[in-house]
């Protein structure tokens, strides 16, 4: 089991219920693959540095998960098929790179 960050950019024009549907689907996919969610950072609509699908804004969801296997294949690939998911990035936690002193 490794720690990963699962970052998603959703369509910014979704209603609150549609966002909830997407979140439920994401969390079901995570649980279905044996991953556990340790933290969720929901930034909401934020301005992007460059347009993605012709929108200057995006709805950010940043999950911190613990997962085994290859989460890029098991988790990110099925989520990419969703119409409202604009971008997904899985970033592996690198504790050996950390520089900040506590």
């Amino acid at each position: 089991m490794n720690q990963y960050d699962l970052n998603l950019i959703l369509n910014p024009n979704l209603s609150a219920e549609q966002v909830q549907i997407e979140k439920d689907y994401i969390e079901n996919t995570l649980r279905g693959n044996g991953a556990e969610i340790t933290h969720l950072d929901e930034l909401g609509n934020r301005r992007l540095a460059y347009p993605v699908n012709k929108d200057r804004e995006g709805y950010y969801l940043m999950y911190t998960i613990r997962a085994g296997g290859n989460p890029e294949q098991t988790i990110a690939a099925p989520l990419r098929l969703r119409d409202n998911v604009r971008r997904i990035l899985v970033v592996k936690d690198r504790p050996e790179w950390k520089t900040k002193k506590a």
């Binding site: 936690d93 690198r94 790179w97 950390k98 520089t99 900040k100 002193k101």
Partner: peptide, 10 residues
């Protein structure tokens, strides 16, 4: 980063 002021992986 070497003096531990900032976090490089953030």
């Amino acid at each position: 980063f070497s003096i531990g002021e900032l976090e490089i992986t953030d």
